[in-house]
């Protein structure tokens, strides 16, 4: 009797788990479907490819909507931010996990966690009032003046040095995603079995050789996972980027000049989009963003799976 009861309970539990798990999957599918349906007016008018590659976004005169400037902006900003943040984050992780004394490691870890917890609007405000004016006066203007004198060919690449643009957005975003890469890399390094280190030391390896030959190869999966998590975060980051990027979708983008990303245009124009086509175009941008995020995540999953197999081979 008792056995039957618990058996039934187990099955009930499994059933509920399945139901909840399927609910998550259904939610994702439903979201994609709703975004597609909401954007279908714009997607139908311009075609999926025409919409994704269209360069004009003019809700008033031409009533033409193309998402290319936003897609391009999203890719430039998030990959540059990842590239800038990856090595400092990795260095911080290695230092905190292997080199630093315990008290210092604790401080570093605490500060990294704190960086992740700061709301993005705060990063944005700091960007508007501190970073952008500083960059303009100390970096952009001198560089611009120098280029004007010595290398005029560089000027179209630099753009107008207002402080609010691509460069500021990339720097803000890079500092926002450091903790994600760093935290996962740190944990991955800490998880490498002690025997590996000891074996490497026993063979006479120096500290750096131990790191390079015994630890990093095994931790690579976690490090890559952290980088992809950071990338996904960068792709979706809205508030801080919108506040400092200058919000211009005029191509070509320049280093100092304004740019725009997919989340920023949605956040900017959604509340006051009165016309159906305009609203639909914004939802269609959301749909494309969904596809891009899916692409990033599935690439991450693929890389991780390959890495796991590699590690299993080593062990």
């Amino acid at each position: 009797m008792r056995r039957l009861y618990s058996h039934f309970g187990d099955r009930l539990f499994a059933f509920f788990l399945l139901l909840l798990a399927l609910g998550v999957v259904a939610l994702a599918l439903l979201m994609a479907y709703e975004l597609y349906r909401g954007g279908s007016l714009a997607l139908g008018r311009f075609g999926l490819l025409g919409f994704a590659l269209g360069r004009e976004w003019d809700p008033v005169v031409q009533k033409a909507f193309g998402a290319w400037p936003y897609i391009l902006g999203t890719f430039i900003v998030s990959f540059s931010a990842l590239f800038l943040s990856f090595f400092p984050a990795l260095a911080a992780a290695i230092f905190a996990a292997e080199y630093a004394p315990r008290w210092l490691a604790q401080i570093i870890n605490f500060l990294l966690d704190l960086m992740a917890a700061v709301p993005s609007v705060v990063y944005g405000l700091w960007g508007i009032f501190v970073l952008a004016p500083w960059l303009r006066d100390k970096v952009q203007l001198p560089l611009y003046m120098w280029a004007a004198e010595h290398l005029p060919g560089l000027l179209p690449l630099l753009g107008v040095p207002t402080g609010y643009g691509l460069m500021t957005a990339v720097l803000i975003l890079a500092s926002m995603i450091v903790p994600y890469t760093a935290a996962l890399a740190r944990d991955a390094i800490a998880l490498v079995p002690k025997e590996h280190r000891e074996a490497a030391y026993a063979l006479g390896a120096t500290r750096w050789e131990v790191m390079r030959l015994a630890i990093l190869p095994l931790a690579r999966g976690g490090i890559i996972a952290g980088a992809f998590l950071a990338l996904a975060r960068a792709v979706g980051e809205t508030m801080a980027v919108t506040m400092v990027i200058g919000n211009s979708h005029k191509l070509p983008y320049t280093l100092f000049g304004g740019a725009a990303t997919m989340p920023s245009v949605i956040a900017n124009e959604f509340t006051e989009a009165v016309e159906d086509l305009h609203l639909s175009a914004l939802i269609a941008v959301g749909f494309l963003l969904f596809l891009v995020s899916m692409l990033v995540n599935s690439t991450a999953a693929y890389v991780l799976r390959r890495q796991e197999r590699l590690v299993k081979g080593v062990l």
């Binding site: 004009e56 976004w57 003019d58 809700p59 008033v60 005169v61 405000l125 508007i128 009032f129 952008a132 004016p133 303009r136 207002t162 402080g163 609010y164 643009g165 919108t242 506040m243 200058g246 919000n247 211009s248 979708h249 304004g258 725009a260 956040a267 900017n268 124009e269 006051e272 989009a273 009165v274 305009h278």
Partner: peptide, 24 residues
């Protein structure tokens, strides 16, 4: 309510525009 601006920096909200104006 949203137009294709020929030039300029876009600030988000009144506070965004005011922030850029004050700092530039």
């Amino acid at each position: 309510t949203s137009v294709q601006w020929p030039v300029g920096v876009g600030g988000k909200g009144n506070e965004g525009v005011a922030g850029v104006v004050k700092q530039t």
